[in-house]
């Protein structure tokens, strides 16, 4: 009897009930990029520690970051950092009580997506150009 009552008690709707919306996706993306940044910082720590150990340790890390998977991870890390940073600026603006209307949140969402991708690509293109395409 108790089990039946527990099973039938009203539950508040959860994520899967709602139609996916952009602002909802941005919230999830902010968490995923935040987690990704933590993984990226583990890579950064590995890089820093290897440099502090010496040339041999650095050679191993450098070979990893110059490999295809290393380059992809670095690209994703920089995008994740920029996306989380822009999303964070959005949150700091919201903390002041501004930009919470329906139009602004949509504009912020699109601005974050587009500028994070554009900035990341621009930075990497500039970086490779400056380094002579290595």
């Amino acid at each position: 009897m108790i089990n039946k009552l527990e099973a039938e008690r009203p539950l508040s709707p959860h994520l899967q009930i709602y139609r996916p919306m952009l602002t909802m996706m941005m919230s999830i993306a902010h968490r995923i990029t935040g987690f990704g940044n933590a993984v990226g910082f583990a890579l950064l720590t590995w890089w820093l520690v290897a440099i502090s150990i010496g040339p041999d340790a650095y050679a191993t890390v450098d070979a990893f970051f110059l490999s295809l998977i290393g380059r992809v991870l670095l690209f994703l890390f920089t995008w994740s950092l920029i996306h989380h940073m822009l999303g964070g600026i959005r949150h700091l603006i919201w903390d002041t009580g501004h930009g919470l209307d329906k139009v602004s949140i949509e504009v912020f969402a699109w601005a974050t997506i587009i500028s994070s991708v554009v900035l990341t690509v621009l930075i990497w293109v500039a970086g490779y150009a400056l380094m002579g395409g290595q």
């Binding site: 440099i51 890390f77 950092l81 920029i82």
Partner: peptide, 22 residues
């Protein structure tokens, strides 16, 4: 707030040292 300028610095540091020597 501290992370905003520091992350810009990190991204520029990473990208400007692709394939740099030890």
């Amino acid at each position: 707030m501290a992370n905003i300028p520091l992350v810009i610095f990190l991204v520029l540091s990473i990208v400007s040292h692709i394939g740099a020597s030890y």
